Amino acid sequence: KDKDLLKGLDQEQANEVIAVLQMHNIEANKIDSGKLGYSITVAEPDFTAAVYWIK
């Protein structure tokens, strides 16, 4: 199951987060929520590491 990592990002921010996570071998998903911006989700086992790397 995926957990929400970040919400309300613009496309550039979302792409930067995806890139950082991929560099650390964390699979992440970018979801277009329309006017609400983009959300990033990661698998539950990767959540703690993902939070660490996006600081």
Rank of each mutant, 00 (worst) to 15 (best):
I26Q: 00
A19F: 11
T48Y: 14
W53E: 01
A19Y: 11
I31N: 07
Q13M: 09
M23V: 07
K35N: 12
G34Y: 05
K7T: 15
V42M: 02
L5T: 02
P45F: 14
A28I: 04
F47V: 04
K7C: 14
G37H: 05
H24Y: 09
I54E: 02
V17Y: 11
N15I: 06
A19P: 01
L5V: 08
H24A: 06
S33R: 15
N29D: 06
D4E: 15
E12N: 12
E12S: 10
F47C: 05
K1I: 11
A49D: 11
E12W: 12
L9S: 01
I31A: 04
G34N: 04
D4M: 15
I26W: 00
F47L: 05
K3Y: 09
M23H: 08
G37F: 05
G8P: 01
Y38C: 06
I40F: 02
Y52V: 06
Y38I: 11
I31E: 04
D10Y: 05
E44V: 09
W53S: 02
G34H: 04
E12I: 09
N25Q: 07
L9D: 03
A14K: 02
F47K: 01
K7N: 11
D32N: 10
N25P: 00
S39C: 10
G34V: 04
S33I: 10
D2L: 12
G37Q: 06
S39G: 07
K3M: 12
V17E: 00
D2P: 12
V42K: 00
T41A: 05
A50P: 00
N25K: 06
K7W: 14
A43R: 13
E12G: 08
Y38K: 00
P45N: 13
A43P: 08
I54T: 05
T41Q: 09
G8V: 03
K55N: 14
H24E: 01
M23N: 07
E16P: 01
T48V: 12
A50H: 03
A49C: 15
V51Q: 13
Y52C: 11
I54R: 01
P45W: 13
T48W: 14
Q13R: 12
G34C: 06
D2M: 14
V42N: 00
V17C: 09
E44G: 09
A50T: 02
K3D: 04
N25V: 03
I40S: 00
D2H: 15
L6Y: 07
D4P: 13
L36N: 12
V42T: 01
G34T: 04
A50Q: 00
L21V: 02
D4N: 10
F47M: 04
N29F: 12
P45L: 13
P45V: 15
E16K: 13
P45H: 15
I40M: 01
A49Q: 09
V20R: 07
K30V: 14
V51T: 07
K30R: 08
W53T: 03
K35C: 11
V42Q: 02
E44Q: 06
Q22I: 11
Y38H: 03
E44C: 08
N29I: 12
V51W: 13
D46Y: 10
L21S: 00
K30E: 03
A28S: 06
A43H: 08
K55M: 14
N15S: 07
F47E: 03
S39I: 14
I18V: 07
D46E: 05
D4Y: 15
Q22H: 10
I26M: 02
N29S: 09
K1D: 08
P45I: 14
D10W: 04
V42L: 04
H24G: 02
K55I: 14
K7V: 14
D4C: 15
A49T: 09
L6Q: 02
K3L: 12
I31H: 09
N15K: 07
E16D: 10
Q22W: 11
A50L: 03
H24K: 04
S39D: 09
K30T: 06
I18L: 10
V20E: 04
G8D: 05
E27D: 11
E16V: 12
